[in-house]
């Protein structure tokens, strides 16, 4: 075995991943080659001492609180955007409908106008128009006008 071959196998030797036959070859080489023997001993020495490097381990509760906090913040951050967009879209779509139902319809058929015209026996609207505007009115409003209409006829 040459020194170059030894260098290629030294890491597997340290990991103990070398078969018996090859190990014998390597041991024979180490016996006659001080350079490779020192290399092996030094590597083993370094790795053994390195294992003694101060190892810090934090309690699980610490990580739990730390990571929970981060995820909570992230969830809030993630949720805030869609919620705001959702609210905006909701008002964008539903807003005009609300406007039509609650603000337009009562003004379209003022009771006073209907009242006046009913007394004159003339309706302000054609039948189609009444149907159309009644769509904008709440059921109670329609009933109110109809009651008024029939009670005065």
């Amino acid at each position: 075995m040459r020194c170059k071959d030894f260098e290629k196998r030294i890491l597997d030797l340290i990991d103990g991943k070398i078969d018996f036959k090859e190990k014998k070859f390597i041991e024979r080489h180490i016996q006659v080659c001080d350079r490779c023997k020192n290399l092996y001993n030094d590597f083993v020495f370094i790795l053994e001492k390195a294992k003694g490097i101060h190892h810090l381990e934090l309690k699980e509760e610490f990580w739990k609180s730390k990571l929970d906090l981060v995820f909570e913040r992230r969830i809030h951050k993630f949720l805030l955007k869609p919620v705001l967009i959702g609210v905006f879209l909701f008002f964008l779509i539903v807003g005009p409908l609300i406007k039509r139902v609650y603000f337009l319809s009562p003004q379209k058929i003022p009771v006073s106008v209907v009242k006046t015209d009913v007394f004159n026996h003339e309706l302000p609207f054609t039948e189609d128009e009444i149907i159309k505007y009644s769509d904008y009115m709440s059921e109670k409003e329609v009933e109110k006008i109809l009651d008024f209409f029939f009670s005065n006829f």
Binding site: H54, H55, L56
Partner: peptide, 16 residues
Amino acid sequence: YENYPFSSNSNSGVEE
């Protein structure tokens, strides 16, 4: 490191 809750085995090997 003083302000952090290291677990009890964190000081192993100090007696070198």
